[in-house]
Simulated scan of single mutants.
Amino acid sequence: MAGQQSQSIQTLLEAEKEAAKIVQQARQYRVQRLKDARSEAAKEIEEYKKSKEAEFRAFEASHAGNIQAVQASVDKETEAKQQEIRAQYEANKDKVVKKLLDRVVLVKPELHRNLQKVEA
């Protein structure tokens, strides 16, 4: 009976070792699958990112001509307005300087209207 018990115990120990081995393999398999899934997800994310960047570059390139055309027209308009302002400045600067000098140099001395009323 003791031999049979020791053989049963030995069988149980072997079964336990086998079960531990199977559990360890399952854990390793799960860890490997998680690593593979992460790697695959990272690849998919990178591919998606590259496709979106290419799409954005294509969109940007297709609209770059419009932006340059608008910028050129704005630059022309700005230059035209600046030339107009310079022309008005050149045409009127002498008149403005003359008016300022007339106001400063040609002073007509008069009594203040309140002072005139008091004396009268």
Rank of each mutant, 00 (worst) to 15 (best):
49 K>F: 05
70 V>N: 08
120 A>S: 09
48 Y>S: 07
60 E>N: 09
86 R>H: 07
82 Q>I: 07
21 K>H: 02
84 E>F: 06
54 A>C: 02
13 L>S: 02
59 F>L: 03
20 A>D: 07
36 D>Q: 01
21 K>Y: 01
17 K>E: 13
60 E>K: 13
85 I>N: 10
68 Q>D: 15
90 E>D: 09
47 E>G: 01
59 F>M: 04
1 M>T: 10
98 K>H: 12
9 I>E: 13
64 A>F: 05
113 R>M: 12
70 V>W: 10
112 H>P: 06
30 R>A: 15
17 K>M: 10
90 E>C: 00
67 I>A: 06
56 F>R: 01
34 L>R: 15
26 A>R: 02
118 V>F: 05
49 K>V: 07
31 V>Y: 10
69 A>M: 11
80 A>H: 11
41 A>G: 06
32 Q>I: 04
73 S>F: 11
120 A>E: 07
5 Q>H: 10
116 Q>I: 02
92 N>D: 09
93 K>M: 00
39 S>N: 11
56 F>V: 04
48 Y>H: 08
115 L>M: 05
36 D>K: 03
112 H>C: 11
106 L>D: 15
103 R>A: 11
49 K>S: 05
70 V>S: 08
38 R>S: 11
67 I>R: 06
100 L>I: 05
56 F>E: 00
65 G>L: 06
24 Q>A: 09
10 Q>A: 12
84 E>G: 00
3 G>R: 12
57 R>V: 00
117 K>A: 02
13 L>M: 05
115 L>Q: 02
73 S>E: 15
71 Q>V: 10
82 Q>T: 09
104 V>G: 01
4 Q>M: 12
57 R>T: 00
99 K>W: 15
45 I>K: 11
84 E>H: 09
96 V>R: 13
12 L>I: 04
21 K>R: 14
2 A>H: 06
104 V>W: 06
69 A>Y: 08
53 E>S: 02
96 V>D: 08
4 Q>V: 15
62 S>F: 10
28 Q>G: 02
72 A>P: 02
3 G>T: 05
101 L>P: 01
1 M>G: 14
76 K>M: 11
40 E>K: 12
45 I>E: 09
115 L>I: 03
24 Q>D: 09
112 H>E: 12
67 I>F: 08
14 E>T: 03
4 Q>P: 05
93 K>A: 03
52 K>M: 08
37 A>D: 04
101 L>R: 09
66 N>V: 04
109 P>K: 08
33 R>M: 13
53 E>N: 04
84 E>R: 05
15 A>W: 01
50 K>C: 01
57 R>Q: 00
22 I>T: 09
108 K>W: 04
60 E>W: 12
33 R>I: 11
14 E>H: 07
107 V>R: 00
57 R>G: 02
108 K>R: 05
72 A>V: 02
116 Q>R: 03
17 K>P: 02
6 S>N: 14
60 E>Y: 15
86 R>G: 01
95 K>D: 15
89 Y>L: 03
3 G>L: 14
41 A>C: 04
7 Q>W: 09
30 R>Q: 15
66 N>S: 10
36 D>G: 00
101 L>M: 04
85 I>Y: 00
4 Q>H: 13
69 A>S: 10
103 R>H: 14
60 E>Q: 15
6 S>T: 11
116 Q>F: 09
28 Q>E: 06
17 K>F: 08
102 D>L: 00
